[in-house]
Design a protein around this nucleic acid. Structure first.
Lengths: 142, 142
DNA sequence: ATAATACATTATATTTATTCTAAACTGTTG
DNA sequence: CAACAGTTTAGAATAAATATAATGTATTAT
């Protein structure tokens, strides 16, 4: 199966051996029809539901972080109590609904390129993220 | 003292009675010559150093969050283990140095206005933040 | 193959930021 | 000064994330 080879490749490039558990994590993350957002807890739950193998929290944490280091996943900058991740690593941004604690993608085409004119000596920009916080639009309240 | 009146006003508008502890918090936050970034832990440490009164963690958390609700402070969206806050509530953005865990302001003039063309029905945008993550620029490594 | 070695997985414990709680305290009002 | 509403506080509770150490699994060289 071609997919499986891709996963093994991703794992090897992340410095991880391709094991049953890690391949299962890859399947959930990269087999989905659409990209999606998730927390570690949600990811564990998905794996539990669709797999007959058990994967521990520690393995999920380690694997997700290895993928982030490598750029196969993105962490979404948010002040939530848990970390949110994204399988969509292309250039795009997010709405965060503060009332429902929900993330919504903003397609790259819907935001003009963010052009930062200032630079920091000796540093380069690794990523630029736009977070637009949204709330209910009740004209009544201020 | 004029300052003190401002603090009492801010506290009242945030739905809090002006008490010794809360006024001390205001002094540290709003008396500074320049705006600054802080974590709760850092704020507590500053208060301990320059005040002769004791303020508990709980009071600091409650007061800071009341000010954020009211817009007197901003929370900076970041996936750090602790929350970062900003006494600068004007429209501006941030670099986050991932290696030194340091925040650097980006002046509004240094970023073109972020114009989001997409809207969500029934929702309005409450804030737009740009986070640019930076790392050392070693040409040698990829 | 098999032994030796290196890496993985797991359950559990630990750490740490944040929130909750209940008791003691303060200040205001009748 | 008694009653009351709101505050402060220390410490407990919660929960995410990380570390640990024992056990399990894969790989390598012989």
């Amino acid at each position: 199966m071609a997919h499986s080879d891709q996963y093994i490749d991703k794992l090897r490039k992340s410095g991880l051996r391709p094991t049953k558990q890690r391949i299962k994590i890859c399947e959930v993350l990269f087999d989905a029809e659409k990209t999606f957002h998730f927390t570690i807890k949600e990811l564990v739950k998905i794996i539990e539901n669709q797999a007959n193998i058990k994967v521990s929290l520690a393995t999920v944490y380690n694997t997700v972080h290895a993928f982030i280091r490598k750029g196969y996943l993105k962490e979404i900058p948010l002040n939530a109590s848990q970390s949110y991740f994204d399988t969509n690593v292309t250039h795009h941004h997010h709405f965060f609904d503060e009332e429902e604690n929900k993330l919504i993608d903003i397609h790259q085409d819907d935001v003009d390129e963010v052009n930062i004119k200032r630079t920091i000596p000796g540093k380069k920009i690794r990523s630029v993220e736009v977070i637009a916080k949204i709330v209910s639009d009740n004209q009544s309240q201020k």
